[in-house]
């Protein structure tokens, strides 16, 4: 198993994060939980479960948390891969493991989880419709032949992680990462993953209409970048 550090952005996940950390630590040496200004005791729970906690002093947004976690992971010279993993328990640790092995075996810089390749059939209809629109948008704007967008499970090799600097602090970072990866010309592959849609993960998930906010962020970001 290559040396990989898992980054878990979390915001008020005290009820589930202990299980997520414990399970991750069976496969990965280090789990970094970025506590994004939780008002519950997520940080203490994650620390007790064995994670390194990087505590944002206030809530900065998921994109900001991810960026902080990636920077912490890169500050560890031994980290060869950075894995991003959601705190709500919707991802499978075995998938994360398989993705790191795939990255190492096939010499890839980036492996992205996709719930639409293979196993996950239980994606709720509304989500599926929204995501198919997001996927088409992502394909067109990035040129990457992807089957999923906004999947929180990703593996970045050190060189790719170093090149990705997230500037969208909120929920638009998922598309931003893909744009940056496409622009950087990294070797990217998708890997089939299972998403567990629990009642908990559904309540923690984004509102569908936030897609419009994301579109707006991306449009402005792109035009400003072109300026």
């Amino acid at each position: 198993m290559p040396r990989a550090v898992v980054v878990v952005p979390m915001h008020n996940e005290a009820t589930v994060v202990a299980d997520v950390v414990t399970e991750l630590l069976t496969s990965f040496p280090v789990v970094v939980c970025v506590d994004d200004g939780s008002t519950d005791d997520s940080a203490a729970v994650a620390r007790a479960a064995g994670a390194v906690v990087v505590p944002h002093p206030t809530n900065l947004g998921q994109g900001a948390a991810l960026e902080t976690g990636i920077r912490f992971a890169l500050s560890l010279p031994a980290a060869e891969y950075v894995v991003t993993f959601d705190a709500d328990g919707q991802h499978d640790v075995a998938d994360a493991r398989a993705m790191v092995e795939r990255a190492a075996f096939r010499d890839l810089q980036v492996v992205l989880g996709s719930r639409f390749l293979g196993a996950s059939r239980e994606v709720p209809l509304a989500r599926r419709l929204l995501l198919s629109g997001a996927v088409r948008f992502t394909r067109r704007t990035t040129g990457l032949a992807l089957t999923d967008a906004h999947n929180g499970l990703r593996v970045l090799r050190r060189d790719a992680a170093e090149a990705v600097r997230l500037r969208l602090h909120g929920m638009s970072h998922a598309s931003e990462i893909l744009t940056l990866l496409a622009r950087g010309g990294f070797s990217v592959e998708e890997h089939p993953v299972t998403i567990r849609y629990t009642d908990y993960s559904r309540t923690k998930g984004q509102r569908g209409y936030n897609a419009l906010n994301i579109l707006f962020d991306l449009a402005v970001n792109r035009m400003r970048a072109a300026a």
């Binding site: 390194v52 002093p57 920077r71 912490f72 560890l76 031994a78």
Partner: peptide, 18 residues
């Protein structure tokens, strides 16, 4: 700025993680 504060707070954990 907040990120630097957060990373500073976690710096002590880095050697053990490494």
């Amino acid at each position: 700025l907040a990120r630097q504060v957060a990373l500073g707070a976690a710096r002590a954990d880095a050697p053990a993680a490494q």
